Simulated scan of single mutants.
Amino acid sequence: MEKGTLYRFFAGSASDAEKEAIKMWLEEDAAHRQELLKERAFYDAVMLADEKQALAVRRPVHHFRSLAVQTMKWAAVILVAFVSSYMFLDQKYSSLEVATNTITVPPGQRVNLSLSDGTKVCLNAGSTFTYPALFAEDTRKVELDGEAFFEVSANKKRPFIVHTGICDVEVLGTKFNVDAYGNDDTFSAALMEGLIKVKNNADPANVVHLSPNHKVTLSGGKLAVSDIRDYDIYRWKEGLICFKDLNFIDLLRRIEKYYGVELVIENHSLSKHAFSGTFRISDGIENLLRVLQKDVNYQYTRSEDGNVIYIK
C-alpha cells in the first residue's frame, strides 16, 4: 500500500475508494496490520516534530518590566506508541484493531498534534494524553491528565469525549480548555466556542451544559459555572504564563506544574504581595524568580537534585 494513501487515511482525508482499498489490503495479510500501525507511529512522530519546529521560530514577546526574551528551546517529547489496549476503527472496518498512543509532555514545554479525525490538540507542560491512532465507530474518546486546549472537528454522529480522573467533557465540535492535573485533584473547563457537557465522575447526576464565554469548576464536590473574566490565562498554548493581580503564593503554585518542581515557601509574609505580568515559559523558572525579586525581598535555593526550590 502506498504510504501517501495511508497518511491521507490517518489525516481523515482519504476517499471512500482509498478506505475500501486499505480494508482489502489489511484482509490480504496479517503483516499488513503491523505495517499500518508502524506507519501510524511514524506519522504521529512527524506531526509532532513539525509542530515543535514551527513553534521554535515564533516571534518573541517581552516580559513585564521590558525584560528581553531568549530564543525558545525545546527538548524531545516522550511518545509511547502502541499501548496494549485496542479499539475498533468504525462500522466499515470493525475487523481492524488499532493501538493507542500516549504522549507525555516534559516540564516547561507544550505539544501540538492533530488527531485522525482532524481535531487539533495543544498539550500543556506535565500533561499525559492518550488517544487512538484511529477512532471507534460511535464515539471519539481520549484521556487527559493535565491541561489541554481542543479544537474538535465537528461530527454530530460521533461525539468527542475527554475523559479525566475527575470529570468527563463531551462535545460535538467546539473550542475549549480543560485543566485536570491528577496530582492537584482539581478540575476546570472553559468554553470559547460551541457547546460542551461536563459530567462529574464522582456524581454522574451532577451534569452541566456550558455555553461560550463560561467556565465550569469543581468546587466542594460540585460543578459550578461562572463567566470567563480573564482569557489571558489560556495563553499558555502560546508559551506564556499570564497573571493579573495574582497572589504570590498562588502564582508559585501555578508555575509549579509548568516546570515540574516543588516550591516550598518558608517566607509566609510573601502572601501579602500580588503581581500582574506576562512571562515566556521557555525562559525558565529561575528567570521568573529573579524578576519577581525586584519587587519582593526574598531569596531562593535549590535542593541537591534540583527538584525542590525553597523560597526564603
Rank of each mutant, 00 (worst) to 15 (best):
R58E: 14
C167H: 12
Y181A: 08
L144S: 12
F150D: 08
L270C: 10
P159D: 02
V207I: 15
D145K: 08
Q53D: 08
R280T: 13
R253V: 03
L79C: 03
V264I: 15
K244E: 10
D227Y: 09
T130M: 11
D185V: 03
P212N: 07
S282E: 04
N287K: 11
D145C: 13
T102V: 13
I196E: 01
L6S: 04
I255P: 04
D250N: 12
K92G: 13
A154T: 12
I311K: 00
G165R: 14
G277S: 11
E97G: 01
K215W: 01
H163Y: 15
A180H: 07
G118R: 05
K3H: 06
H62F: 11
M192Y: 12
E256H: 10
R40N: 13
R8T: 07
K215L: 08
Y234M: 04
S271F: 00
A75N: 06
V264M: 06
Y300L: 06
S94K: 13
Y131V: 09
L89N: 07
I161H: 05
L223A: 10
G173A: 15
E238W: 00
P204R: 08
K120H: 14
V261E: 06
R253D: 14
L289P: 02
E28K: 14
V296F: 03
V198G: 01
H268G: 00
V121Y: 03
F160I: 09
F275N: 07
S276E: 03
P106F: 06
Q70R: 10
L263H: 05
H163N: 15
N177G: 10
S94D: 05
A75Y: 00
K19R: 15
V291I: 13
H63T: 11
N287M: 07
F64M: 09
D250C: 01
A224R: 10
D185I: 05
D185M: 09
P132A: 13
G277R: 09
I196G: 01
L113M: 11
F279G: 06
E35A: 13
A125N: 00
A17S: 15
D283K: 07
K215T: 06
V261P: 02
Y298S: 07
Y231I: 06
F275V: 05
H209I: 12
T102P: 00
Y298L: 09
D117R: 03
H62W: 04
V208M: 02
H63K: 07
W74A: 11
T278Y: 01
R235K: 15
S114L: 06
E27P: 00
V61F: 12
E304M: 04
W74C: 02
I241V: 15
F64E: 09
F243N: 00
L218M: 09
R302I: 03
H209S: 13
F149N: 06
D232H: 11
F129A: 14
S85E: 05
L26N: 11
H273C: 05
I22E: 06
S271R: 05
I233K: 14
D305A: 08
V178Q: 01
L48Q: 03
S226I: 00
S282M: 04
E20V: 13
K237C: 03
N124F: 02
N201F: 01
I309Q: 02
A224Y: 04
Q34L: 08
F64D: 07
A31M: 09
D138N: 12
K92S: 15
I281P: 00
A205F: 08
I255C: 12
Y7K: 08
N183L: 07
K38Q: 10
V264T: 10
V208F: 00
